[in-house]
Amino acid sequence: MSQSTLPAAGAELISVSIGGQLYAIDIMQVREIRGWNVSTPLPHAPDHVLGMINLRGVILPVVDLGARLGLGKATPGPSSVVMVAQVGDRQFGLLVDAVCDIVQVTEGLMQPPPDVGANVRDFVAGVMSLEQGIVSLLSLDNLLPATSEAYGMVA
């Protein structure tokens, strides 16, 4: 998997809350943000895939980001939000507990994730320290593989 470069200064990130932790997503990868609606289940789908939703005539898969990140299954609430992300030519729905803020990246804010031997670096592009705590920038390319093989590989 290619090492995605860290966003330059002036780029914008959207911070979200998953399982009490803050994560960030590059705003350029986000197409739309919308409220949670009950999704239609997809048979034999992995555990982190909740089902399908209809977005203006387009059927999108919805992924439980917490479950995908190994933080446990999310329990959708009133503040739960589905973020429509564009990865390549595919679109996904990402279920997060809440959208927090739009963060503007400043010089020196973003740091590479610590190397702890595991495939953490596949999912986390970088980390930054904010007032609310340490926020991890998720790498959606690795998080949502384009193929099922890749999926399996990653998994």
């Binding site: 914008e12 959207i14 705003i27 350029m28 986000v30 197409r31 739309e32 943000i33 919308r34 409220g35 009133p78 503040s79 939000v81 959208v99 739009i102």
Partner: peptide, 21 residues
């Protein structure tokens, strides 16, 4: 009201997303 605020927030976020794009 809360729901409206939520939706407004979402709309603003979407607006932010569109603005960034």
């Amino acid at each position: 009201i809360d729901e409206i605020a939520f939706q407004t927030n979402l709309l603003a976020l979407n607006a932010g997303v569109e603005a960034a794009r």
